[in-house]
Design a protein around this nucleic acid. Structure first.
Lengths: 223, 223
DNA sequence: GTTCTGATTTTGATTAGTCAAAATCTTTTT
DNA sequence: AAAAAGATTTTGACTAATCAAAATCAGAAC
């Protein structure tokens, strides 16, 4: 069993490699930055992870997962995301708070409990933020999503929110902008980096580019 | 916040001091034995616990809680026991398995989640083993219980089981001997160390002294 | 083709927790 | 009262994870 520290490194590498192809190298410095640690700490850990067979480590170039590493990382993501959904659905915790809780609980829940949760929730494919939940084998449900800046103006539906800080999430929540919400993208000002939308409740809001990049909408078929 | 290691030491000291009066000294060796550690490790930790204000440590005599230590220990017990009840009532895990799970989860659940569980369960006083659940201030609900060996022959009701190994618990469970069960103590052979009972289902079973000491029944009023 | 810059790695130290085994103290036995 | 027995403490060493700061390397700039 990996320690919880190792699990956190695996999650970080997974998220930094997300979307990139298999041989993409994640810079060690990015790993350190993402975890709020010094670069030296990450370097030390990369050697351990290589020893343990989780990654291939090219000094001064970066790291990439082995098959085992990717699977191990996805097991952690599976736990994290099932726990988030459980906290919202069963424990009735607030959408904006569950990430923090799951961050700790993911290292403590046994496989038995995770299996029970998966069953209770009806083997869900997505968590409350719209993040895909890997199955027991680490296979992720696939979807064609685009971030708001790439979306054409007009009606669309929010599917995934890739932010975790409770303040931002609460701000979105108060405006009805949680996964599943329909809204109207009325204008895009790429130069100013501002996106204007009207929510289904009729409220007009402006969203900056950095937040807009975290809001994913379904890509229309045939586009 | 105490580390989970410290929390485990606190729980151990609490259970070894249970029943004894406030100035009773718990031998350091017992603490080590209970946790499956070497005596030297426990000695080292006792100094840390004293530094942290949790215990008074009399070298070669033993340790006893300060007020803060006792409260801290009971907070851990509260978490542990609420989690056990939650796992049985909400997650439908087996009575015999929940102790093991709670042993790990108790260090990971936030106060917010524990409060939510307490609320969901209707602020319960006892866990599935009949162990009292301390309130937020560390106050334990009191009851007058006696272990089976001290119980007179006749009808009685099982209230608490102070064992945690799943094998024994399953054995008891299969015979209907879980907290709340009524049964008949038909004979006590203190010399042989064997207690004969008949369960409410009419099954006759023999129980050895060491297990009998872990089975607690309500002390009749006026006796 | 040097030099500079920025990222990465190395080195040495630190903390929490642990063990094995030697040293020490206390209590019991004789 | 001395010796033996038993428990506890001390000592030295180890692991996992971390940081600060010095050393090193690779690519960009000149």
């Amino acid at each position: 069993m990996p320690t919880s520290t190792v699990e956190n490194y695996l999650k970080t590498i997974h998220s930094l490699a997300d979307g990139k192809d298999t041989k993409h190298l994640v810079p060690v410095g990015k790993v350190a930055e993402h975890l709020g640690l010094t670069p030296g700490s990450a370097t030390t850990m990369m050697k351990h992870l290589e020893q343990a067979g989780y990654v291939n480590y090219a000094p001064r170039k970066g790291v990439r997962f082995t098959r085992e590493g990717r699977t191990a990382a996805r097991k952690v993501l599976r736990r994290h995301r099932l726990i988030e959904l459980f906290l919202v659905e069963v424990m009735k915790l607030d959408w904006s708070q569950v990430h923090e809780e799951a961050e700790i609980l993911e290292h403590a829940f046994s496989d038995r409990l995770i299996e029970r949760i998966d069953e209770m929730l009806g083997r869900p494919d997505y968590d409350p933020h719209g993040d895909p939940i890997p199955d027991q084998n680490g296979v992720m449900p696939a979807r064609d999503l685009i971030p708001l800046p790439e979306c054409p103006e007009g009606k669309c539906q929010l599917v995934r929110v890739t932010r975790e800080d409770p303040e931002t999430l609460r701000w979105l929540q108060q405006r009805g902008m949680t996964p599943g919400a329909r809204f109207d993208l009325v204008s895009k000002n790429e130069l100013a980096g501002v996106f204007a939308i009207v929510t289904s409740a009729g409220q007009s809001i402006s969203i900056g580019i950095s937040l807009a990049e975290c809001l994913w909408v379904a890509k229309k078929r045939g586009v």
